[in-house]
Design a protein around this nucleic acid. Structure first.
Length: 799
RNA sequence: GGGCGCUUAGCUCAGCUGGCUAGAGCACCAGCUCGACACGCUGGGGGUCACAGGUUCGAAUCCUGUAGCGCCCACCA
């Protein structure tokens, strides 16, 4: 495929290609001598207009100013000295110069005022300048040139050579550099020295008018713009915005007459071609100047990035001063990928500043990328992409979105191993590397042995093979979380009968309410900060953690008893409704669909709700105000108290699980602790009852509690728990349990002691850190002591 | 060649300004169909934080180097 268009440097991709390096003799007239030049593109020698050597190269210095005869053409071309083009160490030290067909040679040509001979037609065939080779395709010319040189004894040698060939991104055919007229946008500064396009776009970032997050990406933006390379914006393609230039050959008076009073039309003279270049905002009809002087529009179209650069304002109705443009421009945040910071972002800034005088957005957030399972960027070409629709169908939209946000960390790209879902039996068949790049058209299911086509971007359906859908268990997390929220909401909705709205008063609240409000206030504050700082992954983690591990795992469980008691039920309902309301608002940006559907259901059951006081709910969660709660609700002491109770419950659970005691069997629990801790654990008895089916007697918690016979122990920094297991206790197993606890604790003790024994640590570390370590040692020693005691008793039991 | 980033549990990733026994999800093991949820609950196993130096009382965290990987840019007649 030949696209026959100009391409930008950034549309070229290089590929290592095995080719040949030909060394050709260029005879020096009047002598038997010749200079040797090497090239990977021998056919371009027809357009050589010089041979260059390094000006300081002793081997060739004396030749500068002389000429050589260009083989096959007989043209005499000069030998020039050029320190930029020539590396004397490389090859023969002599370089053929083909200004019309190589960018470096072009620059060399300009430096030495060399003629530029364009050999090629736009279709890649050679033109009349190629003499005998006219009309032949470039590849054919290469063959002929080589054999003709060989026949003439002018081909010194041909060696195998691997070089990097520039291929078009789009067509994957080799780029042929050649001279053509193109349209450029000048990026450099104005002739008077004032800032040009590139500089203005740089200033937008250095002045802080536009911030790039994470900050390090500002560097690629500034570095690239700093080169101020002119932007070639014309393309010889069919699809695209046409270049708004019309050509006319007429007296200027005609233009003045036809466009009198129009400030959207300008023109200037193209002296080289003796015509007017007319530029207009709106399309000009061919007969705008009358039949005598037809206007013809330039056939080229704009670079797609030029059109894209207009996106932030052209989508809002520009150039008309629409209300939308007025209201939305400049926008707030652009979210995009790092590889188009230059191609797209920089150019949006340039056109935004030029057309509207303001940057198009205040913040640019660059997200990490999802890579394929092998760590490579996904691309259509490679065929290693994943179809979001497959994921949505299998896991849900919110699952997709949540997982993506969860993975949007600050630096780390994320690999996404993908599996094909066997269309016959549903087995997940992991994608292997050899399935990539469309090489594998057919995979056999290891389970049902039937064939299918792996999922991916296939150009057309396959009549014989069903194409598999794609899956990736990375989305389990999002799906499970959506489901968790859904079920928590269901629980609440089933328990809202008789709900009455009323304000919450902090003072009368039970400890678990104080705790969850403290957590809610902290978490809401954290999520708000994380979103503002573009730390999306952290925000997702905060919402997930709070909702699942705190609200569902503990608060909802704790509320079950209260909902059964008519005295405590109304408050529990208000708390739960208010909490769910807050969770939905926090989750809405990340899981909009689940949040919205629950919001609607909640509006039916508890229209007026909220913390601390009830308010009528908004019609939709998307217009609900972002939540914020009093900082005074944050109460470290209450949080600590709840943590202690949770630890107590967990200790009992651990024992129950270890002895595999049926959950319906009631356990008797005894706690030995300091009086102060006992105070903190005051509310623990009902929780143990509710959550663990465990009984803690009124006098079972305090400094005087004694270890009951036949019991299992768990030693916590703040308390010792004993669970009576008369008839169930397995003494050797219990010894093993305690020995493991002892192992863990003494390992920690060792580490901490070692630190304290270090004089330098005691002298140089901050006192509070030293103090903390001392306390830790004391705690651990005490715990170990208790464990030892328990072990001794158990060993006596055995004997 | 220049720049940026990464390397932590079997897999995919957290770990912000250095300081409790390094965390999560999935996977794995054991036990749970008790009134939101088996897409679940409970308990558990699993890590020389790539490697080598250095700074520090103390390093997954800071510095230097090495190796591997990814991306962007430049470019080899």
């Amino acid at each position: 495929v030949h696209l026959r268009t100009a391409v930008a440097d950034d549309e070229i991709e290089y590929q290592e290609t095995a080719g040949h390096l030909c060394t050709i003799r260029y005879p020096i007239p009047g002598t038997d001598d010749a200079v040797l030049v090497s090239t990977t593109r021998p056919e371009t020698m027809l357009g050589d207009t010089a041979v260059a050597v390094h000006p300081d190269d002793p081997r060739f210095k004396h030749l500068i100013g002389k000429t050589v005869t260009l083989p096959l053409t007989g043209r005499e071309i000069p030998i020039v000295g050029d320190a930029i083009l020539v590396d004397p160490e490389f090859g023969t030290g002599c370089v053929k110069v083909t200004p019309a067909h190589d960018p470096n040679d072009y620059q060399t040509g300009l430096r030495h005022n060399l003629p530029m001979i364009n050999l090629m037609n736009p279709d890649g065939t050679y033109n009349e300048n190629a003499g005998l080779y006219e009309g032949l395709d470039r590849r054919e010319v290469r063959k002929r040139v080589v054999s003709d040189l060989e026949a003439g004894g002018l081909l010194a040698r041909v060696e195998p050579y691997t070089n990097r060939v520039g291929l078009s991104d789009r067509s994957k055919t080799p780029i042929e550099p050649y001279l053509s007229d193109q349209w450029f946008v000048r990026m450099g500064d104005e002739p008077d020295g004032s800032a040009g396009f590139a500089q203005k776009a740089m200033d937008a970032v250095t002045s802080g008018a536009m911030k790039i997050h994470p900050e390090r990406y500002a560097k690629s933006y500034l570095d690239w713009l700093g080169e101020k390379r002119d932007w070639c914006i014309s393309r010889q393609l069919w699809w695209g915005h046409r270049i708004p230039i019309w050509y006319a050959r007429c007296p200027e008076a005609e233009l003045k007459r036809a466009f009198a009073g129009r400030d959207d039309v300008t023109w200037r003279l193209d002296e080289e071609n003796g015509q007017w270049l007319v530029c207009a905002l709106d399309d000009l009809p061919a007969d705008a100047l009358g039949d005598k002087y037809p206007l013809t529009q330039d056939p080229d179209v704009l670079d797609t990035w030029f059109s894209s650069a207009l996106w932030p304002h052209s989508t809002l109705g520009w150039p008309e001063p629409t209300p939308e443009l007025e209201y939305y421009y400049p926008t707030n945040v652009l979210v995009t990928s790092r590889d188009i910071i230059t191609l797209w972002v920089a150019r949006m800034v340039i056109t935004g500043l030029y057309n509207l005088g303001q940057v198009p957005f205040a913040d640019v957030y660059i997200h990490p990328k999802i890579l394929d399972g092998f760590g490579e960027t996904m691309s259509k070409m490679k065929g290693n992409g994943i179809d979001p629709l497959d994921i949505i169908e299998r896991y849900g939209t919110d699952a997709l979105r949540f997982t993506m946000v969860y993975l949007a960390t600050e630096t780390q790209d994320s690999r996404m191993p993908v599996a094909n879902v066997c269309p016959h039996c549903g087995t997940l068949v992991p994608v292997k590397q050899e399935h990539m790049s469309m090489r594998t058209r057919k995979v056999t299911c290891p389970n049902c042995k039937k064939p299918f086509r792996p999922g991916g971007p296939w150009p057309a359906p396959d009549a014989e093979l069903t194409t598999a859908k794609q899956a990736s268990d990375k989305f389990d997390m999002g799906r499970n979380f959506a489901n968790k929220i859904w079920n928590a909401a269901r629980f609440l909705l089933l328990n809202l009968e008789g709900y009455t709205p009323a304000a919450i008063h902090l003072d009368g609240l039970p400890p678990e309410d104080r705790w969850i409000l403290s957590r809610l206030s902290s978490v809401t504050q954290a999520v708000t900060g994380q979103l503002e700082a573009f730390r999306f992954s952290e925000a997702a983690r905060s919402v997930y953690e709070f909702t699942w591990s705190e609200f569902c795992d503990w608060y909802v469980e704790m509320s079950k008893g209260r909902l059964r008691n008519p005295d405590t039920r109304p408050l529990a309902q208000r708390m739960l409704a208010g909490l769910l309301d807050a969770i939905l608002r926090l989750a809405a940006p990340i899981m909009p669909f689940v949040a919205e559907s629950i919001w609607q259901a909640l509006n039916e059951a508890a229209f007026e709700r909220g913390l601390p006081g009830p308010e009528p709910a908004t019609e939709s969660v998307v217009i609900a105000p972002w939540p914020a709660f009093p900082v005074e609700w944050q109460d470290p002491v209450r949080e600590r108290r709840t943590e202690l109770m949770k630890d107590l419950v967990k200790a009992v659970r651990e024992i129950r699980a270890h002895y595999q005691v049926d959950s319906r069997t009631k356990l008797n629990v005894f706690v030995r602790c300091r009086a102060e801790t006992a105070l903190h654990l005051e509310g623990a008895a009902p929780l143990l009852e509710l959550l663990e089916g465990a009984h803690l007697a009124d006098d079972g918690c305090g400094p005087d509690t004694r270890k009951p016979p036949q019991s299992a122990a768990h030693v916590h920094p703040d308390f010792e728990v004993y669970v009576s297991l008369a008839g169930l206790i397995d003494v050797p197993a219990e010894i093993k349990r305690l020995e493991k606890q002892r192992g863990d604790k003494s390992k920690a003790l060792q580490g901490t002691r070692a630190k304290l024994e270090n004089v330098n640590f005691r002298d140089k570390a901050p006192p509070e850190v030293v103090q903390q370590q001392r306390a830790a040692v004391a705690d651990l020693e005490k715990q170990l002591h208790v464990i030892e005691e328990n072990l001794r008793e158990l060993r006596q039991d055995v004997q």
